[in-house]
């Protein structure tokens, strides 16, 4: 036999060979995608089980990453296990492509995986997000990776993990219904504007990561695959394409997504989710789209039309 035999899983000799290749700009000294192959396999197995059981939290051996917990270590590990040379990565932080977190993560993957990056939602094959779903509807074949700080939706009601596990096993979500009912009793409406709990596939209660409740309806039967990574809490979960995602509500108090009642000061949109920006110390403020790509695309379209 002439072809050299290499053990596929050891990593060392084959890995060394890899380190010196790759597109320009990719740094040497790291495996492609930063994580070692053993870690990637472990995350990949967790991801497949997560997709097979929509909304169920699968524990995984979260690794230390070159940035602190709370900066998206879970999302980064999921992206690292999924991403390949053919991918184009977009990273958003509260909808924005140009914040520190988004820019750093995009640069990180350009360096360690040599992938192309973009700010255009439509051009991306993988979108890693912190706390927003892009306004542009996602399509089949795209992957949306959420950075999740707290994967357990029942955490504020029941801090014991052993108990919440049992509640998920029994599909006993009465605590959450009582919490929503108490909101109505006290405030007259469900006073949850972000991290609004959802039922996935009619079975599992799931935290949508702290996206605004405005974005919740976008998760329902989304054509793209949704993956969730919580680095500190060491959990992975997923929503396959075209899966039912229902925000919890009551017949007489139906779910209502919350949106500031204003138009974007830059592009004039009345449909997109808005951030409130304080402009001076005399009470001046403006509302602008949280999704920078959506907003700049609309502004460019308006300029072209003029």
């Amino acid at each position: 036999m002439t072809a050299p035999i290499r053990s596929a899983q050891g990593g060392a000799p084959a890995g060394v060979e890899h380190r010196n290749r790759g597109p320009a700009g990719q740094i040497s000294g790291y495996n492609v995608g930063y994580l070692d192959e053993n870690t990637k396999r472990m995350i990949r197995r967790a991801l497949l089980k997560a997709v097979a059981i929509p909304g169920h939290q699968v524990p995984f051996g979260s690794r230390e990453m070159p940035l602190p917990y709370g900066w998206g270590t879970g999302g980064i590990q999921v992206t690292a296990a999924v991403i390949g040379p053919g991918d184009t990565l977009k990273v958003i932080d509260q909808g924005a492509d140009d914040t520190t977190n988004a820019v750093s993560i995009r640069r990180f993957f350009a360096k360690v995986a040599g992938v192309a990056t973009t700010e255009r939602t439509a051009a991306a094959s993988i979108i890693q997000t912190r706390h927003r779903i892009p306004e542009t509807p996602l399509r089949e074949g795209q992957v949306l990776v959420y950075q999740v700080p707290m994967p357990e939706p029942l955490f504020r009601l029941e801090p014991r993990v052993a108990e919440t596990k049992r509640m998920h096993a029994l599909a006993d979500y009465s605590l959450m219904h009582v919490k929503l009912y108490e909101d109505i009793a006290r405030h007259g409406h469900i006073a949850t504007s972000y991290n609004y709990p959802v039922m996935v596939g009619g079975r599992y209660l799931m935290s949508p990561s702290p996206i605004p409740s405005f974005d919740n309806p976008k998760m329902h039967r989304m054509p793209a695959l949704q993956l969730f990574g919580a680095g500190r809490e060491k959990r992975i979960y997923a929503v396959p394409p075209y899966t039912d995602v229902r925000s919890l509500d009551f017949e007489d108090h139906p779910f209502e997504p919350i949106r500031a009642d204003a138009a974007c000061a830059l592009c004039g949109s009345r449909e997109s989710y808005l951030d409130e920006v304080v402009t001076d110390d005399a009470g001046g403020r403006m509302f602008v789209c949280s999704d920078t790509d959506y907003c700049t695309t609309r502004q460019a379209g308006r300029e072209a039309a003029e």
């Binding site: 492609v32 995608g33 192959e37 396999r41």
Partner: peptide, 23 residues
Amino acid sequence: TAGFGEPVLDAQRCFRAVLDAMS
């Protein structure tokens, strides 16, 4: 016989195929 010729890239390609199949 040999395993993957490009262990890192081949495993990633196969995983994406399995992930697509599963989803």
